[in-house]
Design a protein around this nucleic acid. Structure first.
Lengths: 219, 219
DNA sequence: CCTACCGATCGGTAGG
DNA sequence: CCTACCGATCGGTAGG
């Protein structure tokens, strides 16, 4: 069964047109794989997505993703790490922009609004597959990248802590702030399950709904 | 490769001890499969759990689950349907008990407390694998059971609607109640990702934290 | 990055 | 419910 008549490896011209130099070898093939992996891991989950699916999505053959990534887990790790890096950058940019635009210092609830709105961008905006993958496919991450991504997540969440504590001092938030933070992130992260960008609610509207729910004494 | 010398099917005595009459044929084998499936689907996800894993968990051979269930999807559907039926029953019992125990009528925030506390039982209590499976493996459910389970979920959520509307009338909740409900369920459902029953927080404590976060003007 | 594989595993079935 | 399978698919690799 193994041995069979193999046709001579004749040099037939490829079906697909040859790629020009700047389409190839950019390392943008790697980027294309990452984007496709993020989308498919989100749609179907890590376990149900084959490396063949990912290869096909970018026009490669089944073995080729392994030229760019050591294995399937490494692809997942790269998706999550890139997602978290981008989310962190976006969080910083939004916060800096809000501080720069405000006439005076930002109130704690204004800070929270900026953080929540930015989180919705990271979670639900365009090119936002990476973060839902990180949240919902976490169990498949190998121990080593798990530590790396955990630290990035801690960094992301650390920005929220003083904001929540300030709200608590104002009386706009009650109870344990650590539990409040976990519950708030739950409410926000769960939107990835039901939010429809085509629906009537905008990300700004969603942000207001969240603030009305979490923060007391809002004018 | 297919044809090979098959040893005569001699009647050798089984390695496992024979089961007594009341251990067998109860339909409790079906129940055992459901429990094992719920646990494994929760731990590893639907796609990564093999029917062999489930069979082995209850001491069956690889083909035997298909004597009880038509296919793997039917097992998942049964886990979710049973989980939702039990959750609904538990919700009704808790609510009835609270009404019976109270001296007067229940306030809206007292109602919400009962609902939240019961939801944590359904999600995090003992024998609570079914509901997290339903929440997190939803995408694998076939269209027909999806309709069935959807209706059960709608029934479960419908109990919350008048409670949230009453809170809104009191001023204890602001903004759109439909959005508030989705955000609240998100906060509650996400606890399945991080809550540790061995940790310092009890389900009662978690309930209080949730009510402090969601409900304004709590004494 | 493709070709041509391999060994392992999986859902499911026929027949008893 | 077990035995003994099957066809399909999967992650990954050697060699170019």
């Amino acid at each position: 069964m193994d041995a069979q008549a193999t046709p001579a490896p004749e040099r037939r011209s490829r079906g697909r047109p040859r790629k020009t130099a700047d389409e190839r070898d950019d390392g943008n093939r790697r980027q294309a794989l990452l984007r496709a992996a993020a989308r498919l891991f989100r749609q179907q989950g890590f376990a149900a997505t084959s490396t063949r699916d990912i290869a096909a999505a970018v026009g490669m053959r089944s073995g080729s993703p392994f030229y760019h990534f050591e294995n399937k887990e490494a692809l997942l790790a790269a998706v999550m790490e890139e997602g978290m890096q981008r989310a962190l950058r976006h969080q910083r940019e939004r916060m800096d922009a809000a501080v720069a635009a405000a006439p005076g210092p930002l109130s704690a609830s204004e800070c929270l609004r900026v953080l929540v709105r930015g989180h919705f961008d990271n979670l639900l905006g365009p090119e936002s597959d990476h973060i839902p993958v990180m949240l919902y496919e976490w169990r498949w991450l190998a121990p080593q990248p798990k530590r790396v991504v955990s630290e990035l997540m801690a960094e992301y969440e650390a920005v929220w802590v003083p904001v929540l504590q300030a709200l608590r001092r104002e009386g706009a938030l009650r109870g344990d702030t650590a539990l409040a933070r976990l519950l708030i992130f739950g409410a926000l992260n769960w939107t990835a399950q039901w939010y429809d960008p085509e629906g009537p609610t905008t990300l700004d509207g969603l942000t207001e709904a969240a603030l009305q729910l979490f923060v007391k004494d809002m004018e």
